[in-house]
Design a protein around this nucleic acid. Sequence first.
DNA 1: ATCGATGCAAAGTGTTTGCAGCTGT
DNA 2: ACAGCTGCAAACACTTTGCATCGAT
Lengths: 140, 140
Amino acid sequence: MAHVREVSIETRLRDCGLRPTRQRIALADLLFAKGDRHLTVEELHEEAVEAGVPVSLATVYNTLHQFTEAGLVRVLAVEGSRTYFDTNISDHHHFFVEGQNEVLDIPVSSIQIGNLPQPPEGMEIAHVDVIIRLRHKKSR
Amino acid sequence: MAHVREVSIETRLRDCGLRPTRQRIALADLLFAKGDRHLTVEELHEEAVEAGVPVSLATVYNTLHQFTEAGLVRVLAVEGSRTYFDTNISDHHHFFVEGQNEVLDIPVSSIQIGNLPQPPEGMEIAHVDVIIRLRHKKSR
DNA sequence: ATCGATGCAAAGTGTTTGCAGCTGT
DNA sequence: ACAGCTGCAAACACTTTGCATCGAT
């Protein structure tokens, strides 16, 4: 059976110092199989359960944080309550659809940012986030 | 006693359809007396109590949301858990110091953003947030 | 067999809500 | 006096943690 991909994900986990357990492999599969994704813990948990891998919510939280530390995913701060995890760790920006809690990628090339201000003394820039908040046009 | 400012804040509240109560006036005073500020509910609550205006936390939450709807302040989504309120409602951007939970304004003129991507069909841009995340330089 | 991972439930945060009593007009 | 606020505590959503069991090596 299609074992080829599993092996590579296993290796990837191992390289991060994470033991490739059933749950981690399943979650990593869900995360990376479908291209770039923006998921909440809840959503990923639901997907896992639907895929027949009954992980617990707590494990999804723990696993996503481990993945974050390992640099496999990154955290997206778009909206107060919920935390989004982004499987696209390359440099890019986001649309956020208000009310719909939907996140869309913006390739870094479609925005021009120039003239970044100097960070205060002793600080350096860790990351630049651009979030373009969208709403539905009222016109109808 | 210095009643002049109070009156103007009262008027401002009234204009928003908010009854100028003790608590609202006190909170508005704290918010707007010291220039542009970035505060969490907790911080504002503490300031109010220290200033001898014992409002309840719930009232601070309610009041800040009312102020937000009235357009007196705006919500800042920089970080997952806590909600920041920004008293500067003009167009500008932010530094965010990781680990320190500190927010600093960046005047809109010090960043050049060009070439905004087209929003998806039927959507329009509500707001563009730029957050420059900072960390301390490791050098020492 | 060992040490780490998992699941559950309980504990934490930060935030919201319901309702009795208080306050501004 | 009335409608709208406020305070408290209880309810909530999301997230983290403790501990006994399970699983990968």
